[in-house]
């Protein structure tokens, strides 16, 4: 077999997720923006920081009244910690080693997760006193606290510095934008690699399972009826007929889409028992018909990618009779 095919893959919603937030998170993030750490009182677990909307033990709604809210900290105590040896600079707050810790702010009954900056893990201990180091440009995020830093004994933590006024104004924080970018390396797999090897030669590779006579164009590895691997290679013609199609009039659906209107069709290739989806070009959209005979248009430069098969275009032969493709609709 040829070299396995692998490729980088990124999953990222462009612009970041737009999260609406409930009243409790709103109040907390608004507090952080204004340089204050707020907690909410619960019946079963005391003052919760960070605050949640529901009692963690009883699921009762909490925080409905202003009296349920208290300011805590700013000093706090470390309850647990870890030293991050190799920070993930793209996602974590610092690119130099730092600590994550569970910190219980004074006046709170629960600990919150945040970063602690010290010069060495030896400077960390359970019970150590810390205080927040506030950012100046605060927008209503847990990252408005840059990090927590050691609080020398006898020192009163300073108030948060006034924040840089920006376009966000002074109203309550009502949402957050959350970029999430995840990196993957994807393997094509044996069957797809075989198909793409065919693409590089201007051929459509098919597969068949030993227990069946049915041939799959662009097999994904098995005969999906039985789960049996399509271990027998079968070359399929690059001609066939359109079984059905639609005319797409929406521009910009994907980077690969041609100018509208364009035709996206199911093509039953000669020698295959399943249809594949493909673009139809080489004629006007309104001329495309069910049963129309088509032929692959190969790229001038063939590569081991789907792009080698650019689209299908009419051959000019008479249309296939309905009976030839009626079982593939």
């Amino acid at each position: 077999m040829a070299e396995p095919m692998i490729a980088d893959h990124i999953v990222e919603y462009p612009g970041g997720y737009t999260r609406s937030i409930g009243p409790a998170i709103s109040r907390y993030l608004t507090g952080l923006r204004d340089g204050r750490i707020l907690g909410v009182k619960s019946k079963t677990a005391g003052v919760l920081v960070p605050p949640v909307e529901y009692d963690p033990n009883t699921s009762e709604e909490i925080g409905g009244s202003d009296d349920d809210w208290v300011e805590v900290g700013p000093a706090g105590t470390v309850e647990s910690f870890t030293w991050v040896r190799r920070p993930r600079a793209e996602k974590q707050p610092f690119s130099q080693p730092f600590a994550f810790a569970l910190i219980k702010p004074d006046g709170a009954d629960t600990a919150m997760l945040h970063a602690v900056v010290v010069s060495s893990p030896d400077d960390l201990s359970i019970g150590m006193r810390v205080m927040p180091h506030w950012k100046v440009a605060r927008s209503g995020s847990v990252r408005d606290i840059e990090a927590w830093v050691p609080l020398p004994s006898g020192v009163t933590p300073p108030a948060a510095p006034p924040r840089t006024v920006n376009a966000d104004g002074e109203g309550a924080v009502t949402g957050l934008i959350q970029p999430i970018k995840l990196h993957y390396t994807i393997s094509a797999g044996v069957a797809t690699t075989r198909y793409l090897d065919g693409m590089a030669q201007g051929k459509i590779a098919g597969g068949r399972a030993p227990g069946s006579t049915e041939v799959y164009a662009a097999s994904r590895g098995t005969d999906p009826k039985t789960g049996e691997p399509t271990s027998i290679d079968v070359d399929i013609a690059d001609t066939g007929c359109i079984t059905t199609f639609c005319v797409v009039n929406i521009p910009g659906l994907s980077a690969l889409a041609p100018p509208v209107p364009f035709v996206s069709a199911h093509v039953l290739l000669d020698g295959a028992d399943n249809t594949i989806m493909a673009l139809i070009r080489g004629c006007e959209a309104h001329e495309v018909r069910m049963g129309m005979r088509v032929k692959a248009k190969w790229a001038e430069k063939l590569t081991r990618t789907h792009h080698s098969l650019e689209w299908f275009e009419p051959t000019g032969e008479p249309d296939a009779p309905y009976d030839d493709y009626k079982d593939n609709l």
Binding site: M5, A7, I186, H306
Partner: peptide, 8 residues
């Protein structure tokens, strides 16, 4: 990657 992207 490797899946024929649906353009539609």
């Amino acid at each position: 990657p490797f899946n024929a992207a649906l353009a539609s």
